[in-house]
């Protein structure tokens, strides 16, 4: 059950725009607003990967 925290994190990371609505720090010339949200795509894939691997074979997921 506690593994479900992994599934909640992407919502917290991406649905509160004041957290990331700024220019700095930039990465490769890309403002924070943009690369931060792109980074969450990768982070989410990783979190889901961990979730899928750790909960394999359980019937409640």
């Amino acid at each position: 059950m506690r593994w479900y925290v992994l599934l909640v994190l992407p919502f917290v990371g991406t649905l509160i725009p004041p957290l990331y609505n700024h220019a700095r720090p930039a990465l490769f010339g890309m403002p924070f607003f943009y690369w931060y949200q792109l980074a969450w795509v990768i982070v989410t894939a990783g979190l889901l990967g961990v979730f899928v691997a750790t909960t394999r074979g359980r019937h409640d997921t």
Binding site: F11, T14, N21, Q37, T44, L48
Partner: peptide
């Protein structure tokens, strides 16, 4: 402008939802 970028968080959080609902 920036408002159009909402599609990125959309296409991110859709997957945790999919994982729970679709399985």
């Amino acid at each position: 402008g920036a408002l159009g970028f909402f599609a990125v968080p959309y296409a991110t959080i859709a997957y945790p939802i999919a994982l729970v609902v679709l399985t």
